Amino acid sequence: MIRSQDKISTSQAIVVFVSYTMAAGILSLPRTGVEATGTPDVWLAVIFGAIIAAVSGIILTKLSQEYPEKTFFQYGEHIIGKWLCILISLLFIEHFVTIAAFEARIMAEMIGFYLLRKTPQWAIIMVMMWVGFYSMKDGMGSITRLFEIIFPITVIIFITAIFMSVGIFELDNLRPVLGKGIMPVLKGTESTTLSFISAEVMVFLIAFMKKPEKGVNVVLIGISITMLIYLATVVFVIGALSVEGVTGRTWPTIDLMRSFEISGLAFERFESLFLVIWIMQLFATFTISYYTASLGLSQLFSKKNRPFMYGLLPVMYLISMYPKNLNSVFSLGDYVGYVAAVLFGVIPIPLLIISKMRKIREKTSEKYS
């Protein structure tokens, strides 16, 4: 059973959902989107990607709503049996562990390149992991309260920094719309969809909600908020740097912040402030993924959560340190996205169908018994 102090409201669930979604993708999305489309129409691909992510999230939500106050790790056995449930649950857990490791490594890469050039990556990653452990050791309630502080600060700073670039924004850089037709947009939808890693959080978030019937609202509002932020990012980054200027940059969103300064303000250059705030957002995604993985193991094997929290630390550290360079890190991110598309975009569909069929069969049996 879920502890009362871990129960969260609908608005808190939205904060957790968006905090999980807005991670490393926003820093490189303009580049990956332009590389995939080859046109300024990335913003259309973002909208299509959001729609696909929303559909996936709704399916997972409908599945979880069938089993109130239970995560997939608990109700999966009822749908597909014990051993198949264990197999799929372990795949889910492996995915969350990999996401946590990826976010830790991305954060280390950013901090090492922009802020602390002489600090070794292992030191940055270990600090993040132990702070994450401390933040989540008391359960979902404490995690949510932390994100309620981080989220509004992130949004305010992001909006301020993005719209400060209006002075270097050129609308012509976004033209022509659909100049090469719809096919480039459809090609770009794959990369933008992978940036909307979010649906999987519903395998456990519904269980903590005071009003699980509001789960679909959480998905739709959460995806909408993320989509608007991603849209603002790609529009202003491409509008300021142009399609050609974006393709040659590793972190175009950060480079946009470095392209302007406002004299006379407390912060004349915004990239350092933006980096600090977005590091908090990376930390949020890391924490949720870490907590979900440890929670899944504890529920799957009916053990206390704390030992699994400790046990996952070295595993995440080894995965985060495995990529040898930044290109390998991005390859790991692509792997995470493709795995998420299969695990949480394809598998939930037959699970929902089987669950509905079992419910109908049980009601029929009760009726004639």
Results as ranks from 00 to 15, higher is better:
92 F>E: 07
44 L>R: 08
34 V>I: 04
61 T>R: 13
344 F>A: 15
362 E>S: 15
2 I>K: 07
178 L>Q: 12
84 L>S: 13
184 P>D: 08
74 Q>E: 15
270 F>P: 01
232 A>F: 02
174 L>S: 10
319 I>K: 06
26 I>P: 04
45 A>K: 04
1 M>Y: 03
124 I>M: 07
116 L>K: 08
171 L>P: 00
335 Y>P: 00
152 P>V: 02
249 R>S: 11
369 S>M: 03
189 T>R: 10
72 F>H: 13
253 T>Y: 02
252 P>F: 00
31 R>P: 10
336 V>H: 05
287 T>F: 00
37 T>H: 09
53 A>R: 04
239 G>N: 03
309 M>F: 02
144 T>S: 05
361 R>L: 07
167 G>S: 14
309 M>E: 14
366 E>F: 00
20 Y>G: 14
160 T>K: 01
141 G>D: 09
364 T>Y: 01
128 M>T: 13
193 T>F: 14
300 L>F: 04
167 G>C: 00
141 G>F: 03
293 A>D: 06
167 G>T: 11
281 Q>W: 00
103 E>A: 12
366 E>Q: 10
257 M>D: 09
4 S>K: 07
257 M>T: 10
270 F>N: 13
251 W>I: 04
202 M>Q: 08
201 V>S: 11
133 F>I: 11
67 Y>R: 12
82 K>S: 12
12 Q>M: 07
259 S>Q: 09
34 V>Q: 05
19 S>T: 05
139 G>A: 05
224 S>D: 10
313 L>D: 04
67 Y>Q: 12
3 R>Y: 01
53 A>M: 07
219 V>A: 05
302 S>Q: 15
231 L>K: 11
283 F>Y: 14
308 F>R: 11
205 L>A: 07
344 F>R: 14
13 A>S: 12
91 L>N: 07
45 A>H: 05
354 I>M: 13
70 K>F: 01
265 L>V: 12
250 T>K: 10
158 F>E: 09
3 R>G: 01
291 Y>K: 06
85 C>L: 01
127 V>C: 10
277 I>F: 01
361 R>Q: 13
7 K>G: 12
307 P>W: 02
330 F>C: 01
32 T>Y: 02
244 E>C: 00
235 V>L: 15
110 M>P: 00
335 Y>L: 12
325 N>E: 13
174 L>H: 09
268 E>D: 13
321 M>Q: 10
18 V>P: 11
30 P>Y: 03
195 S>F: 03
151 F>H: 14
15 V>H: 08
219 V>E: 06
82 K>R: 14
8 I>Y: 10
26 I>Y: 03
83 W>M: 14
151 F>D: 15
229 I>W: 02
237 V>Q: 08
137 K>F: 01
369 S>N: 12
43 W>P: 04
185 V>I: 13
337 G>E: 06
343 L>N: 05
131 V>T: 11
360 I>P: 00
356 K>V: 10
273 L>S: 02
103 E>T: 11
347 I>P: 09
369 S>E: 13
40 P>N: 06
367 K>F: 06
271 E>C: 02
198 S>Q: 08
44 L>C: 02
278 W>T: 07
343 L>V: 05
127 V>T: 15
313 L>Y: 02
157 I>A: 12
275 L>N: 12
8 I>S: 10
263 S>Q: 14
209 M>L: 05
196 F>C: 10
103 E>R: 00
143 I>F: 02
97 V>Y: 00
63 L>R: 07
322 Y>P: 00
6 D>M: 07
100 A>T: 06
114 Y>P: 13
305 N>P: 00
187 K>T: 12
